[in-house]
């Protein structure tokens, strides 16, 4: 008999335990115990007493659930609501699939001699720096020269779409948080969780909810992971706007809308841009992991390097990601610095 028998008999629960002797599937440990003959009769000393865990209590009382029923229950619960969730979530998230597919198609079907100059033009417009344009040009040409152009463009277009949606959703959420302390208190634990949850864990429920062939699966994973900094820094930026200036805006009779667009957002812009920079960098980190669930791009090559032990392929793709990261970081930082210098007080 098990160690905790006395507990159940002491509580007068023996009847309940015996009535429904649970005949759950046998665990490996049970099997080993049985085959080695170390049986129920062996008297365990207090020294060896196991922690009163669910499994240990189940030994003593058959009606007590095993810990595997916890994971099993969770799984069954999730599968139970999955269908109804899919009915709601599928149509809502469908535009994301279209956006991602559209971006991928556009980037890849447009000839390189249009795409690269376009990207350089964008760099020039947001940074006003020829040095950065030259740097980006060299990097992109280098990637294209070693035949990684398609992969790099796939990665870039996924990042563009996801970062754009992050900003589109994150900035309004951040603004709402800055206006309501209640919302801030409610949102911060969620943001903390999103930021600390290992990226792989996002993928698990998403795989069940959406089909792996759809691009929104990795799109959602990337957005959930990367949206946090832009929300946080928008909230922070607006809360950090000088109280005296807000008071002046009030004293001159500005409406809430005027205050938001003419004072708060412009003054919080350096912080918001810092959040956008972080969001882009985190999208890049996640797009590699998302290659596990069919996200195209450089991450696929990294994955191939790991799976097939193709050292060279993995390393070159990894370096390609580093190059993209440096480009994105430099360009967003340069535009951030430009905003900062024109608004110093």
């Amino acid at each position: 008999m098990a160690v905790y028998d006395s507990v159940f008999s002491g509580l007068g629960l023996s009847d309940w335990c015996d009535k429904t002797e649970q005949d759950g599937p046998m665990s490996m440990a049970d099997l080993m115990n049985q085959s080695s003959g170390a049986g129920d009769d062996a008297q365990t000393s207090i020294w060896d007493a196991p922690f009163p865990s669910m499994d240990a209590l189940n030994d003593a009382c058959g009606s007590f659930p095993q810990s595997r029923s916890l994971t099993k229950g969770l799984e069954e619960g999730f599968l139970g609501v999955k269908d109804s969730m899919s009915i709601v979530l599928d149509p809502i998230t469908q535009p994301l699939s279209w956006l991602l597919d559209g971006a991928l198609f556009t980037m890849l079907s447009t000839p390189w001699w249009i795409v690269i100059p376009m990207l350089l033009l964008v760099v020039r417009l947001v940074t006003q720096s020829w040095k950065l344009v030259a740097f980006v040009g060299v990097c992109l040409s280098g990637l294209a020269f070693i035949d990684h152009y398609d992969y790099a463009m796939q990665t870039l277009s996924i990042i563009f779409v996801c970062a754009f949606i992050c900003v589109l959703l994150g900035v309004p959420i951040g603004i709402a948080m800055s206006r309501s302390n209640t919302l801030q208190r409610a949102a911060i634990p969620v943001l903390d969780m999103l930021q600390t949850l290992p990226p792989f864990v996002y993928l698990i429920p998403l795989i069940f909810l959406f089909s792996v062939t759809e691009s929104k699966l990795y799109g959602i994973a990337i957005i959930l992971y990367a949206i946090v900094p832009v929300i946080r820094l928008t909230n922070l930026g607006i809360r950090l706007v000088d109280k005296d200036i807000i008071e002046a805006a009030d004293a001159f009779g500005m409406t809430d809308r005027q205050k938001l667009y003419k004072v708060q957002i412009p003054l919080a812009l350096p912080n918001i841009m810092a959040g956008v920079n972080q969001t882009i960098m985190m999208s890049l980190a996640m797009v590699v992991i998302a290659s596990l669930v069919s996200a195209p791009g450089l991450g696929v090559l990294v994955l191939r390097g790991i799976r097939n032990l193709e050292l060279g392929v993995g390393l070159v793709a990894g370096l390609g990601i580093v190059v993209l990261a440096v480009i994105l970081d430099r360009v967003t930082k340069a535009s951030l610095a430009r905003i900062d210098s024109s608004r110093k007080d």
């Binding site: 005296d244 200036i245 002046a248 004293a251 608004r343």
Partner: peptide, 10 residues
């Protein structure tokens, strides 16, 4: 009119 001016810096 404010002690710390409270002009809009941008």
């Amino acid at each position: 009119v404010f002690q710390k001016f409270a002009l809009l810096p941008h």
